[in-house]
Design a binder for these strands. Structure first.
Lengths: 381, 381
DNA sequence: GTGAAAGCGCTAACAG
DNA sequence: CTGTTAGCGCTTTCAC
């Protein structure tokens, strides 16, 4: 492939002129600029980013690392790409398949390739590579949930109030025996959601019954078992709050196996909208996260860190979730058939059919609060 | 970050010894090797891949570019990562959101960053960047479908027989009026599928009725409209063959709107298994592609090209699809509740509930046939 | 407004 | 078995 030197020779100029033409880093006479452009065209020249990175020590690349691929992360990715693209960064997408070892590999790979910053939805716990990143003040922004022991920027939905809102909704519908399927406690988000569940019960004067919460069920197959278990309690719960979208899949199957109708036999509220939610009947009441906004915010934060002070104390941005009330909680307005515009929808959260937003809109100006490392450690989201 | 020189100084050796220790490219005495390793540990040294890439002109990185993210591509990605990882390549995942311009951007980005090769599911038509890639004999392997005018390695399901198999199945079930929703003709795969549909009809002596095929509907919302249209024909089709997984979503909604029951009012066969297929009732009869195998094969091919002769004529590998007969075509065995193992399933194609495989197993040894550029152009898959 | 030249951190002859 | 050294292709001082 042609190099800047080839172009320079052909245009009869120095390599530095070629460089300046392509980067606009200093004035170049129109005559020379035209000659350079012509020569570069003829040669099919494309500046070698690898060499540039070596020289400038910045790759204009961001790593985006997620444990899994589903609608939630894809929507977040959209926000990431939009902000990154506008700021001249390319995005390297890495998918760890829920494997912390893979996560380490990808983080190392990104660091070795001199990605300028990393946006990460952690697969679980703290590990060496995270330690190294944090120690070297590598621009790193977490989203979705925090990692205990790690002080880093974070953008996430405030899970406690989100869960509270969901459970309060069920209580309002008259339910008093509400089962909860929770994700694995390695995720700080799971714990926060259980906490919101508890608070909603307490506020309604309903005693907390430990046997109605099954945790450690982040995967679909485990959540199926969790629901089978919950539904064997007597008296049987009349409502179910299920902690994430993967788990909704398993939960639905369990209910079908048991022959329980939603919402007549059990009311249902899930977490995270999923693309197939619209095809389920009844339509699902769900806590929806402002996915696109999460992506935008996280990217802005990582760029701030790259281009600003890398030693600034960690920030935490919390965004609000919305409760999309539909049929499965017995509270929805049953409307026209599901909307189909999802795949095109580039606005904040995915558009949803027959929805009635219960809580406030997702904050447009996310509340930002500073938090020192210690505080961050004590208040997982 | 520490460099090889820092390590060398600290260990009292030359940089070349450091390099050889890390690459195993020549013998190093145990004494020196230990000193190097110790020094590198103390300094937290990580070889700078950017510099290495500049020097060696190979990045050990592969680009994986897809138009969309869904279960199909994620499964393919698994195969890609496994083979690439085993061969020491990292994978850079790029998602073009169905936008050919984005595709160009990503291809350029990959080339500028010196990815060693690219695995691409094209978003549509030929464009400049593809031209440049092909002209410079850049290692490129297409999968899923070909691009007219572009001669490149290709691995794809043989779409014509796959569609034929699906439609023949419906005919066998007694249907004679079968509607088809086809993807956009910019995809060679769409055209091949329609061809298979026609052949199945012809073989059964059923006249081809143009009004029963609606094309250009690769997106969910368009396929909904397509189904509404098809179902307004009189007499109404008694069966439907729908050309890809995105379209199944829209089709299901249309049928629900019309209040038509599957398979009693309309029999249904879709293309591509999707993760939410198991939650639909009735369970869907689908043409399933050997996704994992497609990923493995494509990656092997691109690595062959990188490490072998870049000017070898283009090869085309075709893999066989399977027909998973379930309830929606009225032909299934209704079995136990849907399997939940999908997300863990790392074997060839995703495990499927209540399935009866109709055609032969996906070929274990993919048939490879050489094809010169001209022939490749004339025989899109 | 332009060019010469010194590296960025690594690898790989080449020389010992 | 080990060290010296010349680049890979670019950016960026420095000098004109």
């Amino acid at each position: 492939m042609a190099t800047a030197r080839d172009v320079a020779r052909r245009a009869g100029v120095s390599t530095s002129t070629v460089s300046h033409v392509f980067n606009g880093t200093r004035g170049v006479s129109k005559k020379l600029r035209d000659r350079v452009l012509a020569a570069s065209d003829e040669l099919g020249f494309e500046p070698n980013i690898v060499a540039r990175t070596l020289k400038t020590n910045q790759s204009r690349t961001l790593g985006f690392v997620v444990p899994d691929v589903n609608a939630f992360y894809i929507d977040v990715l959209r926000g990431v790409e939009d902000v990154a693209g506008a700021a001249g960064y390319a995005v390297m997408f890495c998918h760890t398949h829920d494997d912390p070892t893979q996560e380490q590999n990808y983080l190392r790979l990104l660091r070795a390739r001199r990605a300028d910053g990393i946006i990460l939805s952690p697969a679980g716990t703290y590990h060496d590579e995270l330690d190294r990143l944090s120690r070297s003040a590598y621009p790193l922004v977490l989203f979705d949930c925090s990692v205990p022991g790690l002080s880093a920027d974070l953008v996430a939905v405030d899970n406690e109030p989100a869960a509270h809102m969901a459970v309060a909704h069920l209580i309002e519908k008259g339910h008093r025996r509400i089962g909860m399927v929770s994700g694995d406690y390695v995720f700080s988000s799971s714990e926060r959601r259980v906490r919101g569940y508890r608070r909603a019960l307490e506020e309604a004067g309903i005693p907390f019954d430990e046997s109605l919460v099954v945790s450690g069920a982040s995967r679909a197959d485990l959540s199926r078992r969790a629901v089978l278990e919950l539904m064997s309690r007597s008296p049987r719960p009349t409502a179910l709050f299920v902690g994430n979208n993967q788990m909704t899949a398993g939960a639905m199957i369990a209910l079908q196996e048991l022959g329980l109708a939603v919402p007549d036999d059990v009311a249902y509220v899930g977490f995270d909208d999923v693309d197939w939610a619209s095809f389920l009947r009844p339509q699902m009441t769900m806590v929806a996260q402002p996915t696109y906004e999460i992506g935008r915010t996280a990217t802005q934060m990582v760029i701030d860190r790259i281009e600003g002070d890398p030693d600034r104390p960690a920030r935490r941005v919390s965004l609000e979730a919305k409760l999309m009330v539909r049929e499965s909680s017995g509270g929805g307005v049953s409307l026209a058939p599901a909307s189909l515009a999802q795949t095109q929808d580039r606005t904040s959260s995915r558009r949803l059919p027959s929805e009635r937003v219960v809580l406030a809109e997702a904050a447009r100006r996310p509340r930002v609060r500073a938090a020192g490392p210690v505080r961050a450690r004590q208040q997982p989201m």
